[in-house]
Amino acid sequence: MIAHLRLILAAAGFALITIILLPVQLLFVKTGWSLQKKLPVLFHKVVRHLLGIRIHVHGKMAQNRPLLLAANHSSWADIVVLSAIAEVSFIAKSQVATWPLFGLFAKLQRSVFVEREKRGKTHDQASEIATRLADGDVMVLFAEGTTSDGNRILPFKTSLFGAAQVAIRETSVETVTIQPVAIAYTRVHGLPMGRFHRPIIAWPGDVELGPSLIGMLKEGAYDVDVRFGEPVVIDSKSDRKALARLMEEKVRAMMQRSLQDRD
């Protein structure tokens, strides 16, 4: 009974905040007003409260620009968590653009949609990301290329790390800062989540969004660690494959620190 009441209240709150802010953000994006970067932060702060997510931030997001954040990805809630912390945009798979409502949200947050399986488009996609980086937008790359079960880090894909070097080659910037970010869901109702309960919030690729969303809304009261690691500054001579491996190692180490409940 309590779970269903929580679901109804959260859904009603989500509908209300969407009705109020979505048309406003649509106007901001169409007019190019600078508030288009700030409004998603407000929206996601409200949504994370509705979901019952408590965020624990360790470290700070780098101040250098251009800045690319290389993060792990285990849940659709990662979007809410990162967006509630800072003004960011996401590099998302092309299918997201077609999702009902959530695709519109992604577009209004000025996401860049990529087709990872079409290698012939890699350069054009990297160029779009590079332009956004050079313009000062903080872009989030979920470097695993898919969602995990929340207990481990999958191998980082190397292709879109090349966008950072494209920004150096094709724009006026001389360096790009890459910062590793680890997102780890650690507790539910104040109790350690553990491997058994982490699927409550994890969203592996074969699980439909609807049931995952409803299940999470019913449960409520989650704790998540977000760790910002030591940033790395790259230039035109940097090796993107070595960079991807380094980011993977850093994110894995930070995630394990959170899962083992160490500050």
Score class of each variant (00 low, 15 high):
residue 126 A to C: 00
residue 246 L to M: 13
residue 55 I to C: 10
residue 246 L to H: 15
residue 52 G to D: 04
residue 11 A to P: 05
residue 255 M to D: 13
residue 105 F to H: 01
residue 16 L to T: 04
residue 70 A to F: 11
residue 227 R to Q: 14
residue 103 G to V: 01
residue 5 L to Q: 05
residue 167 A to V: 00
residue 147 T to Y: 00
residue 122 T to P: 00
residue 27 L to V: 06
residue 221 A to R: 09
residue 214 I to N: 06
residue 120 G to P: 08
residue 164 A to W: 02
residue 143 A to M: 03
residue 151 N to W: 08
residue 132 R to K: 14
residue 251 V to A: 00
residue 160 L to C: 07
residue 209 L to Q: 10
residue 260 Q to A: 14
residue 41 V to M: 03
residue 213 L to E: 07
residue 71 A to F: 03
residue 168 I to D: 04
residue 251 V to T: 05
residue 118 K to L: 05
residue 55 I to P: 05
residue 124 D to F: 11
residue 48 R to W: 03
residue 190 G to V: 08
residue 29 V to W: 02
residue 157 K to G: 00
residue 216 M to S: 14
residue 90 F to G: 10
residue 230 E to Q: 14
residue 140 V to I: 07
residue 156 F to I: 09
residue 222 Y to L: 04
residue 161 F to E: 08
residue 183 I to S: 11
residue 84 A to F: 05
residue 250 K to W: 12
residue 125 Q to D: 14
residue 228 F to V: 11
residue 195 R to V: 10
residue 16 L to W: 08
residue 120 G to A: 07
residue 45 K to L: 06
residue 3 A to Y: 01
residue 19 I to A: 13
residue 4 H to A: 10
residue 148 S to H: 02
residue 80 V to W: 11
residue 228 F to Q: 10
residue 263 D to L: 14
residue 38 K to D: 03
residue 146 T to I: 12
residue 143 A to C: 11
residue 233 V to C: 13
residue 27 L to G: 01
residue 104 L to R: 10
residue 255 M to K: 15
residue 221 A to K: 07
residue 136 G to V: 08
residue 221 A to N: 07
residue 231 P to M: 00
residue 261 D to Y: 15
residue 138 V to C: 06
residue 166 V to M: 00
residue 226 V to Q: 05
residue 9 L to D: 06
residue 248 E to W: 08
residue 225 D to Y: 00
residue 140 V to R: 00
residue 89 S to W: 09
residue 32 G to R: 02
residue 245 R to V: 09
residue 256 Q to C: 13
residue 55 I to Q: 03
residue 196 F to W: 15
residue 55 I to S: 07
residue 78 D to A: 10
residue 189 H to Q: 13
residue 201 I to E: 12
residue 148 S to P: 03
residue 171 T to V: 04
